[in-house]
Amino acid sequence: MLHEQQDFNYQKIGKKVLRIEREGLDQLEQYINADFSYTCQIIFNCRGKVIVMGMGKSGHIGKKIAATFASTGTPSFFVHPSEASHGDLGMVSSNDIVIAISNSGESHEILSLIPMLKRQKIKLICISSCSESSMGRVSDVHLCVKVPKEACPLDLAPTSSTTAMLVMGDALAVALLEARGFTYEDFALLHPGGLLGRKLLLHVCDIMHSGEDMPYVTFDASLRDALLNITSKKLGLTVVVDNSMKIKGIFTDGDLRRVFDRGMNLYSVRIQDVMTHGGIRIHSDMLAIDALNLMQKKNITSLIVTDNYNNQLLGIIHMHDILRAGIV
């Protein structure tokens, strides 16, 4: 049974671990060398995918490295070495490259696969702490990732070494990202479910009110007809168009207040006599986030959506539409 140690200084040990791991990372810069550049070039020129392998804790790090590659423009996935020995090696093709991760460089599960990889002429990149290890000697390029010591006081649990491997993987992924000219838009295409993806991929035409949901009246309609249109569409406005759907103006609740102030007859007044000419318009291919920014800048809640050429009404977008889409 574990006994509570109230006097034990957990903070001291935690800070010691951070210090040891920082020191390990300080040593890592020396390994960003010609081998690093060669590794990046091999990955950059790869016509297939980057297959990452590793056992134990190195395997967990490998999964993260593969995921980072894949999300930043380098097609990649993780293959467990043991599963590879039982059929999953079929996932690897001759156009792929393999990154094998092992702190000692002596993982027998990976070593047993190397003859098959060599037979298919698949380039092998090894990341370990020793270039003279078995894996290091047979690899096409070896990346050394060596730390002075583990943060574990028993020097057994992989701690500093796995942190350094993870950082080396990040260095490779980011170097390749920049070399490819990877953009925000590229990132969003690979993350459509995330906030950034929604911000960058969702256009006005995807969420605007159009067709029968769109509030509009012709310029010869009565004010009464316009009010019925506004209340039925529930967007607080209606757009005034001619017979070819070209925009003439807009009528909002602000215009209605001015009508009441002037004591006008709702049945006899035509909408063209009380509408606001113009109206703030955007194109249907505008990003929804840009539409939201424009609404906030103009202190309004809706925008008229037009085509790019003929000033024809295509739809209405309301601030609530953008909020419902989860952009903010």
Score class of each variant (00 low, 15 high):
Glu185His: 07
Pro153Ile: 12
Ser160His: 10
Met245Asp: 03
Ile250Val: 09
Phe187His: 06
Gly193Pro: 13
Ile230His: 00
Met214Pro: 08
Ile250Trp: 12
Val217His: 01
Asp206Cys: 09
Lys248Cys: 10
Ala175His: 09
Thr218Cys: 02
Val241Arg: 08
Leu223Ile: 03
Leu223Arg: 02
Leu189Gln: 04
Asn243Met: 13
Leu200Val: 08
Ala164Glu: 10
Ser210Phe: 15
Phe219Arg: 12
Gly194Asn: 07
Val167Thr: 10
Leu196Met: 11
Asp206Pro: 15
Leu177Tyr: 15
Val204Trp: 09
Leu228His: 03
Ala157Lys: 11
Ile247Asp: 11
Ala164Leu: 13
Ala164Pro: 14
Lys246Gln: 15
Asp220Tyr: 07
Thr238Arg: 06
Val167Tyr: 11
Ile207Thr: 13
Pro192Tyr: 07
Leu201Pro: 13
His209Ile: 02
Thr183Met: 08
Phe182Ala: 03
Arg198Phe: 06
Lys233Met: 04
Ser222Arg: 04
Val239Gly: 00
Ile230Lys: 05
Gly169Leu: 15
Pro158Asp: 11
His203Val: 13
Asp155Thr: 10
Asp206His: 10
Met208Pro: 09
Thr231His: 03
Val217Cys: 03
Pro153Cys: 09
Ser161Cys: 14
Val174Asp: 01
Val167Glu: 09
Ser160Pro: 15
Ile230Ala: 01
Lys246Asn: 06
Leu154Ser: 11
Pro153Lys: 15
Cys205Ser: 06
Thr231Val: 00
Ala188Tyr: 12
Glu185Lys: 10
Arg180Ala: 13
Lys233Cys: 01
Ser244Ile: 05
Asp206Lys: 05
Met165Val: 02
Val240Asp: 04
Leu190Met: 13
Lys233Gly: 06
Leu189Arg: 10
Gly236His: 00
Lys199Ala: 02
Met165His: 04
Gly194Tyr: 13
Glu178Asn: 01
Ala179Tyr: 03
Leu202Asn: 09
Arg180Tyr: 07
Ala173Ile: 02
Cys152Ile: 12
Thr163Val: 08
Val167Pro: 15
Lys234Met: 04
Leu237Met: 05
Asp242Cys: 06
Gly169Asn: 13
Ile207Cys: 10
Tyr216Lys: 05
Leu195Met: 08
Gly193Phe: 02
Gly236Met: 00
Ala171Gly: 05
Tyr216Gln: 00
Asp242Arg: 10
Ala157Ile: 07
Gly249Phe: 14
Leu202Gln: 07
Leu237Trp: 06
Phe219Asp: 07
Ile250Thr: 07
Leu177Thr: 12
Met214Arg: 07
Phe182Ser: 01
Ala173Gly: 08
Ile247Ala: 13
His203Asn: 12
Leu156Val: 13
Lys233Tyr: 03
Phe219Gly: 05
Thr183Gly: 03
Gly193Ile: 04
Leu227Gln: 14
Leu156Cys: 14
Ala173Glu: 11
Glu212Gln: 01
Leu202Lys: 03
Thr238Pro: 04
Ala221Glu: 11
Phe219His: 13
Met214Tyr: 04
Val204Ser: 11
Leu177Gln: 09
